[in-house]
Structure formats: structure tokens, C-alpha cells
Design a binder for these strands. Structure first.
Lengths: 303, 303
DNA sequence: GATTGTATATTGTTGCCTAAAAGAACAATC
DNA sequence: GATTGTTCTTTTAGGCAACAATATACAATC
């Protein structure tokens, strides 16, 4: 009896297909990043590869998209985007992801505002955020992967000083100002023309209007990707890893940081300038420009 | 019936108090790092704080130490070290830790030698290393925390390219050669006299003979601690975090790297020289020396 | 005043089971 | 030849109950 009750409660809470909606959101977000338009085909295997999943879950997501009117499917012909991923109609699908991030964001906020102690027990978190053990488990795994919480040897977890320190944001930028230019200055740094072209194209799309349609989160993500791609040229995974980690934590601050579109526009123009110099293989100069780019204090939120 | 069987099997495998022995090992290792001698008191609360545990598990460890003849306890007077932690008698306790690391080391070796594919499922690992789900879980958590494996969105885990790349070791050193000097060069770098004194004392103890009594793993650990303490002076947790991460991965290689005690001795003398310069607060010079120190290729295993 | 001893409450683990999700292989279709 | 539809197997998640480990508070002792 209790088993039946709990399963009923569960499916009620999930509304039947939370997972599918989540997957739909992932697909839509990907389509957006890739700059796809209404009418483009959504090829299962390609989506699966891009999202590191198999076709089965992709399928679920596609069906959910169809149900939401964002994709059209015909038998044996697969699915096609019905709306531009940047249009307002696509918002609800993306919201599904956002909803699942709710608790995560709450915790992040509470830590940043010191409403949570350094050391916490799982039971405490379960109570406080009304989570099942499994849900919390996944959440903690994720946060641990992002590097701002770690298991204690005994019971409980401890938040990293990286998040709890009041000056974390400035520290993060100082760290980036060291590793990013240094990566470019590595002796075997190299960025292929194709990569440069792709990066340039994306930055230009932003300037040509897409910036206005994006959420803060997406703008932040796009900025991170740009920098990561550049750093990737050093061919040293440790630089990339380190940058990813800083960015994961900076993201926690991102939501609250002041963002002015003009400022961003200037920022993106600097990105384009950097690409020019990199294309000319003037790496020393590029490193210098990047260092300056990162020391600009006003643009912490989106660089 | 099955329940009884499995629990019997379990306690047989554990030999009754594996955990206690493990704790004993931790205490002994700590005593060793702290340079304690036979006759020193083992104060429960202090040990608990140092190991991030409460007194209860410490107690267990102390009793195990007593059972092994490494500590002596009297009622209401607590425990006292019975042997020097560097003596041969202390070895068995430390071995308990090493034993528990067996599977971890196996996996590390298999990954480094490409005997494991990039992507693996939990079930595969459970079969391969004969682990229960829970044991594997903890192991994966730890490896994930060290940053060389990550969950895939669907089933399975993926090893980081940081480990699998053949040039990982060189890349790791290149990364350190960037962040460590840069940390010292940070405008607000500062290292207190006490810290310098403590570090110096420890390095000197090594030169005065302790080096010979240490295992490769301990030597490696000691080197990492030295560098981490130095970097800590920058007051920027991101530098520390990044260094920790590189070191965690370098440790995987450490066991196989050639180590020559003379070479180490030279290395430690460089550490002492660095401390001198830091004490004089000549930070620019110190950064330069550290950069050189890290570019020396022969000593990768222990710097 | 600091430290240890002891009792008690809290917390996390483990094993088992069922259900759900994902992956893989192959046939059908464009 | 690529892509989709379908089926089947494998893998993981979720929930529960008993259990073991850990934390905490307070009294006793040095």
C-alpha cells in the first residue's frame, strides 16, 4: 500500500514526463547554440552524439518537442524544427531546464549569502530543500563535480572556500588573468583557421542581433565557450580543466552581476580583435591583449 | 538466509575491524607528518580536528594502535605514542591504508596503460574489480573529486583526457610552471614567518635522514604539501584548488617515476633556498626561482 | 582548565527489490 | 547510404528497513 501511494505521489509530482521535457529543453538549447533555424532537420544520431546520449532518450525529447509544437515529425522522415529556437515560442521548453535548476540555484544563493554553514550534513539539506535522498545525491554529485563542495571524511560535506569567500569573484578573475594569457603564450600554442572562423562567425552573429534574444545564462555560457576554445589551442588539458572550474563557480555569481548590453558589445568586439591577432599568429601580442581584456573590471559577468 | 550469508562473508572479508585499522593508519601517518616522537601524547580532540572527524572514530583508531603495540593508553590519561612513527614497527599500521588503496591504484594503472576504455559503465567496473555497488560508488566519488573521471549524462562514466594522454606528465608540469610562480607574483602575496619556519623545519628534517625512511608516496605527498603551502600565500583559493588538482593527477604517475634520493636532496635544498628568498620578501626573485625549479625535467616525480 | 569516559541522538550505508532509462542491433523505409 | 522504427538486453535509479558509523553533550577525572 505504501508503495502504491508513494509511486502515485511521485508520478503526480513529475507530471508524467518531466524527463522528456528536460530532454526537449536540452535539444532546443543545443539547436540554439548551433544556430539552427525553423525547417532544419533534427537528426537523432547527431543529437545523441552532441549530447553524449543514445538515441532512445533523444527520441523522447523529440516527441515532447512535437507535443509542444516546436518540432514536426512525419513517419520514417524524422523530425524537423517547427520554430526558430530563438523565438519566444521556444521559451517554455527551455524553462523546463530552468525549473530543474531551481534547487541548485537556491543552494548556490544560500551559500553565497552565507545563509548556510560551511559544513552541512545530507539530512540537513534534505530537510531544508525538501529533497529525497536520491535527488540530493545527484545534486551533490554535480556540485562536487563543479568543485564547490566536497565530502568530509566522516559525515557531512564542506563548501569550498572558493565560493564562500566574499572576494571570490575578484579572485576568480585574477586567476583567469594568469592562466589564459599563459595558455596562449605556451610554445606549442596553435589555433586552426577553421576554429578561428567558427568562433568569429558565432561572435558576429551575436553582434548582429542575437545578443538581444539571449538570456543572461546563455550569454554567460557563450562567453565561457569562446574563452575555452581559445585556451584549447594550447593543447594542454590542465589549462582547459582549470578554466572550466573557475567558470563553473563564476556562473554562481553571474546571475546577480550587472550586465549592460553595450558593455557586452564592446566585449565581443574585443573577442573579434583577438581572433584577428591569433589568425596572424602573433601569439605574444594576443596574450597581452587577452590579459588586458580580463583585467577590465566592469565586464566580469560576461567575459 | 541470504542476508546472514552475505553479512558473514562481509565481516570475514573485513577481518573484524578494517575501519579501525584504517583509522590507526591515518593517525600514524599524521604523527609522522607532524614529526612526533615516541612518548608524545595523542590528544583525541586535536587528532579529530586535524583529520576532520569527531572523537568517536579517533578513539577506535587509538584502540587499534594500542592493540598493535604502537600506542599505550591508561585510564583517564589518554594515549601516548609507544614507538617512533618513522620506525619499522609503524609500518604495518600504514600498510592498512595502502591495502585500502589497492583497487584505486589498479584502476589508475589500467587507465594510464589504456587497458580501460574512455567510457565505462558502473556494472563493468563492478565486475572487473569485484566491488559492491556501494564500494564502487565511493571510489568513483573520490576519483571524480580528483578530477579524472566524470559522469556522462546517460549511463556510464568517462575518464578525463588529462590522464589518458601520453604527455600528461609534461603538460602537468607546464601548467604548474605557469600557476605557481604567478601565485607568488600576485600583488598581495604574503607568507607569515611562522609558516616559513614550519616549512623550513620540515624540509630540514627530511635532509637530516627522514627521507630515507619514507615511502615514495610519502615523499610525493610531502612535496605537494610544501608547494601548496607556498601557493597559499597568494590568498587566492583558485590557485590552491588548481594545484591540488594537478597534483592529484600527477600522483597517478608518481609511483612509476624514477626517483633518485640524491636528486631529491638537491630538490629539497632548492626548497630551502626558496624559503630564504621568500623570507626576505623578494617575491619577484622567488617567482623566478620557482619557475626554474619547476622546469628542471629530471625531478618531475617529487617536486 | 583541559582532557578523557560514556551515553545518546543523529547520520549515512548496505542490501534487496522493482521500475525506469538507456544502449545496441537489426529491419524497414526513404 | 543514411536515417528512422522496433525490439530486446543491459544498466541504473528509487525506496525501504536494518544496521553501522559518527557526532554531540555532559559527567568524571586528571
Amino acid at each position: 500500500m505504501t508503495a502504491i501511494d508513494s509511486s502515485r505521489q511521485r508520478s503526480a509530482r513529475n507530471g508524467g514526463s518531466e524527463r522528456a521535457e528536460h530532454l526537449a529543453g536540452l535539444i532546443m538549447a543545443l539547436a540554439r547554440r548551433e544556430g539552427m533555424k525553423a525547417g532544419d532537420r533534427l537528426i537523432e544520431q547527431r543529437l545523441a552524439d552532441a549530447l553524449d546520449l543514445s538515441r532512445a532518450p533523444i527520441r523522447l525529447g523529440l516527441k515532447a518537442l512535437e507535443a509542444a509544437g516546436l518540432a514536426r515529425g512525419e513517419p520514417h522522415r524524422g523530425f524537423v524544427l517547427a520554430k526558430n529556437p530563438t523565438s519566444g515560442a521556444a521559451q517554455p521548453a527551455l524553462a523546463a531546464i530552468r525549473r530543474s535548476e531551481q534547487v541548485y540555484a537556491n543552494i548556490a544563493g544560500d551559500v553565497l549569502a552565507s545563509r548556510l554553514p560551511f559544513d552541512v550534513t545530507e539530512a540537513e539539506l534534505m530537510r531544508r530543500y525538501d529533497l529525497s535522498r536520491a535527488e540530493l545525491q545527484r545534486l551533490l554529485d554535480r556540485i562536487a563535480a563543479e568543485g564547490w563542495i566536497a565530502r568530509l571524511p566522516g559525515y557531512g560535506w564542506r563548501f569550498a572556500e572558493t565560493v564562500s569567500s566574499p572576494k571570490a569573484q575578484a579572485k576568480a578573475m585574477a586567476f583567469r588573468a594568469v592562466i589564459e594569457p599563459a595558455a596562449i603564450a605556451q610554445p606549442d600554442f596553435m589555433l586552426s583557421q577553421e576554429v578561428i572562423a567558427r568562433l568569429r562567425e558565432r561572435q558576429q552573429r551575436l553582434l548582429e542581433g542575437e545578443l538581444e534574444k539571449m538570456t543572461i545564462g546563455e550569454i554567460y555560457h557563450s562567453g565561457c565557450e569562446f574563452h575555452e576554445q581559445i585556451i584549447r589551442g594550447a593543447g594542454n588539458p590542465f589549462f582547459i580543466e582549470a578554466l572550466r572550474r573557475v567558470n563553473a563557480i563564476r556562473r554562481l555569481f553571474a546571475y546577480r552581476s550587472f550586465t549592460d548590453r553595450d558593455c557586452m558589445r564592446r566585449h565581443i568586439r574585443e573577442h573579434l580583435r583577438l581572433l584577428e591577432i591569433l589568425e596572424a599568429q602573433q601569439y605574444a601580442e594576443a596574450a597581452e591583449l587577452l590579459a588586458k581584456h580580463l583585467q577590465r573590471p566592469l565586464v566580469q559577468g560576461v567575459s
